[in-house]
Amino acid sequence: MVTPQITYNNRPGKHMLEIQRQQLLLDILDEKRFATVAELTQMLKSSEATIRRDLVKLDKQNKLVRVHGGAQAMDKGNKGSSLKHIAGDAFWVSKETKADVKRAIARKAAELCEEGESVIINGGSSTYMMGEFLQSRNLNILTNSFVLAQELAERSTNQISMPGGEIYRKQGIILSAYENDTTQHYSASKMFMGTPGISEFGVTESDALLIRSEQKLRRQAEKLIILADSSKLEKRSSFIFCSLEEVDVLITDSGADPAIIEKYTQYGIQVLIADQ
């Protein structure tokens, strides 16, 4: 499968490029149809001045319509949105949130990979950062993250596989609504994935389509390893991916409450603390 030719930077703390921010801005408008400058500033973690400059440029390019206080998507008649959307934070915004903590967690996760091993890495900002620490490794990796796949394809000699499906640019992943998408032909010892929240309800996710895709990946791996910074502990999202009993390893940071960690260990979960 040909990896989409999109260039990304994996250095911690590096802000998204203007072209990435503007494409994300257009994706947000395609989904919401209208957004205020204040909303875009919050969602894109940028200044109002930056967002206003983006709106001026994109308006001149006839890619959106500037209105008082914000912008709206170009009128497509009765067609509505031109893209399919799933719930969840945008990848490039999420990547900049707690970047140093996520990088430390990703490093700890990469240390669990053994040479020659077959692993599954689910799409997400924390798991994407594993790429930096896998560049010199020799692994067989199945991932639905096209941004991670390109990172590793360009900078490593790992064997990279991807499932078939549609690209969801906002989250940087490929998802398939079909049961047969080549995933079933892959066998892995470990699956790494992030989550918007983990609690006594289990590992949760923001969208039902994500759940369906991730559960297909989970069936192909022996162990499940969750990457979740301390702000995700005792949080829950809209859908349950799996129970705590199904989690083998949880990697978090030193900001985690020891009482919460102890509770998770009672479910048989090995909890690893990543130091920054």
Rank of each mutant, 00 (worst) to 15 (best):
Glu154Leu: 12
Ser176Ala: 06
Tyr264Glu: 10
Asn140Tyr: 03
Ala87His: 13
Asp100Glu: 10
Thr36Ser: 10
Asp30Val: 03
Cys242Leu: 06
Tyr267Trp: 14
Gln22Met: 15
Gly70Asp: 12
Ser189Ile: 09
Ile167Asp: 03
Phe34Ala: 08
Met193Ile: 05
Leu139Ser: 09
Gln184Thr: 02
Asp248Ala: 14
Asp207Lys: 03
Ile121Cys: 00
Asn78Cys: 11
Ala73Arg: 13
Ser187Gln: 14
Val101Glu: 13
Leu29Glu: 09
Lys32Ser: 13
Lys102Pro: 07
Arg21His: 08
Tyr168Asp: 05
Thr41Ala: 10
Ala259Thr: 08
Ala90Glu: 06
Tyr186Thr: 13
Val65Ile: 15
Pro196Asp: 06
Thr3Glu: 01
Lys95Tyr: 11
Ile6Phe: 14
Gly165Trp: 03
Asp257Asn: 11
Ile120Met: 11
Ala90Ser: 10
Gly124Ile: 03
Lys190His: 12
Met191His: 06
Asp30Phe: 08
Glu234Thr: 02
Lys223Leu: 15
Thr183Asn: 07
Ile121Thr: 02
Arg218Ala: 13
Ala110Lys: 02
Gly13His: 15
Leu64Ile: 08
Val249Met: 00
Asn140Thr: 04
Thr182Phe: 11
Leu152Asn: 08
Ala104Arg: 04
Lys76Asp: 06
Tyr178Glu: 08
Leu250Trp: 11
Asp27Trp: 14
Arg212Pro: 00
Tyr267Met: 05
Gly124Ser: 01
Arg219Pro: 01
Ile174Asn: 03
Ile226Leu: 15
Gly197Tyr: 08
Val37Gly: 02
Asp207Cys: 07
Leu224Phe: 14
Ile174Asp: 04
Ala87Pro: 00
Glu166His: 09
Ser46Cys: 06
Phe34Gly: 05
Ala153Ile: 06
Thr204Leu: 01
Gln20Asp: 05
Tyr264Leu: 05
Asp257Ile: 04
Lys232Asp: 08
Glu96Gln: 15
Gly77Phe: 13
Tyr264Pro: 00
Val147Tyr: 02
Asn180Gly: 04
Ser254Asn: 15
Phe239Lys: 05
Leu233Ser: 04
Ile261Phe: 09
Asp75Asn: 13
Ala177Pro: 09
Asp275Tyr: 12
Thr7Asn: 11
Asp253Arg: 04
Ile160Gly: 00
Gly116Trp: 06
Ala259Tyr: 12
Lys108Met: 08
Val2Gln: 07
Asn144Glu: 02
Pro4Arg: 03
Lys102Val: 07
